[in-house]
Design a binder for these strands. Sequence first.
DNA 1: GTTTATGCAAATTCTTTGCAATACT
DNA 2: AGTATTGCAAAGAATTTGCATAAAC
Lengths: 149, 149
Amino acid sequence: MNYEIICTFALVKQEDCVELLASHGVRPTSNRIIVLRALALSARPLTLAELEEKLLSVDKSGIFRALTLFREHHLVHTIEDGSGALRYELCHGHGGDDDDDLHVHFFCENCHRTFCLDGVSVPQVGVPPGFVATSASHIVKGICPECGQ
Amino acid sequence: MNYEIICTFALVKQEDCVELLASHGVRPTSNRIIVLRALALSARPLTLAELEEKLLSVDKSGIFRALTLFREHHLVHTIEDGSGALRYELCHGHGGDDDDDLHVHFFCENCHRTFCLDGVSVPQVGVPPGFVATSASHIVKGICPECGQ
DNA sequence: GTTTATGCAAATTCTTTGCAATACT
DNA sequence: AGTATTGCAAAGAATTTGCATAAAC
């Protein structure tokens, strides 16, 4: 089994970001490229506040509007890990335009960081008749390797 | 498979609530009994705001403090369904004092209600070496039977 | 020149706390 | 009396919006 932990994206180059934005129907403005790159370069999903701290040149509202737009265009999805703030993460886009990514997240109850476990895929569960499932999220909580020594 | 949808608790009677509180080391005050009963009588997990609306006689802060206490004593757990507000639900207490309940929640993207799917249990997923999992939550999103017609 | 995007400030929403008053033992 | 609980008011934290300016097409 592939136990890769870090979500790495090869979107270091600006032109790749531009392309990704355009291909999702988002006009690639300077702020949007900056926000997208920050997400792409991060190993972990980020909160709005964390992005704000990283991107001093872009206003909070601008970051927020970029993220909202990205979400609408299925470029980014959100995770709620219990920290109180929403976390944003690039969709790994398994081809389709599904809302949520199909991997599991791990929230460390000690250091309060959220990891994405790329190697672990979200198990499918059956829902009762009448319910129609479009996406699912699975969050495991516990202690991360660093905090466990 | 048991496809029961509604989480029903037979805690209609005040004395049962008193007993449950006491057995969890929580002094059964009037407010706490009221809050506990409201949760017990609800088919779905409730937000603080929803409880506030139901329980006009108890102040928001009182409800909040009761819920926090319940949570500390593993009487109640919380769910984040993407609605923006935390939802509180009675632990079904499978004997142990585990933090999270072991069933799946369903969030309807149309009516924004959260159901608990008692019949569906949270699948176990393996985590990479070094991670220690203590609990897990699984939320399915989509359309509920009522909204799907 | 019209539409789109941005920054600033502020409104909203949800959660949490300080403190005085009340109830319990 | 002394501790625990509650209500009221307000502080914090995070998200979201209005509006005037600036940029893009």
